[in-house]
Nucleic acid binder design. Structure first.
Lengths: 117, 117
DNA sequence: CTGTATCCTTGGCGATACTG
DNA sequence: CAGTATCGCCAAGGATACAG
């Protein structure tokens, strides 16, 4: 059953250019995954440790989405206990760099706020 | 009543540096507000029109938060029907620039994805 | 080890009505 | 015009258990 009250799930494409793009880094843990992957190749449990508090479910979802978006690469190594390694693509590294700029500005704003208030 | 089951609202400050920063641009319409404000000073209803679909409540919340974060400025003009003008601070413009970089990368990734799939 | 499936809670956000 | 207050829905995401 669809159950639409008015017209909820309406994606007006005009103003959504930005939203489509911010969707790339939206969601809990997304930025964190990119951040920790920037430090180098990591396997699943390592990431889960790094992100301290993320559930396996969310980590999987985020990694799948980022892989699909071309931000991270998945590499299965057929070792005795098979492990999977994740790393950033070149675009992923670029994205991380751009994100870093945002973070810097955010930090500066936070400091300014702390001084001001 | 606080009602904690395990230890839900735990804000471990170590890994949360990034989250604190991404929090700045998180939430529906936040990026859009910054985006449209970048084009110049806008009043409340103009923004509401620009953002096509935002409720007054959310717009107010976003503007208040962005103002509090030092991203936007609020200026009340005591005209006959009093109007309020919003604009980006200098930091806000920087933030918008940084966001633009992210958007560019996101667009490129989207094109690559369209080609690849 | 690396996930996947299910259940359940929380709060983000839309809708609506009211105020100065 | 520029908000504020209240209600309610729904989806994001945490917890847990299970699978390859």
């Amino acid at each position: 059953m669809v159950k639409r009250r008015k017209s909820k799930v309406v994606p007006p494409p005009s103003t959504c250019l930005l939203r489509e793009c911010t969707r790339l880094i939206s969601g809990a843990w997304t930025a964190d995954v990119i951040w920790y992957l920037h430090e180098g190749e990591r396997c699943f449990t390592e990431l889960q440790t790094d992100l301290q508090g993320v559930s396996a479910k969310m980590l999987t979802i985020r990694l799948r989405k980022l892989e699909q978006d071309g931000v991270v690469q998945r590499l299965t190594k057929l070792t005795a206990p098979p492990t999977v390694w994740y790393s950033l693509t070149s675009a992923g590294h670029e994205l991380c760099g751009a994100l870093t700029n945002v973070v810097e500005i955010a930090q500066r704003l936070k400091r300014a706020q702390a001084v001001g208030a």
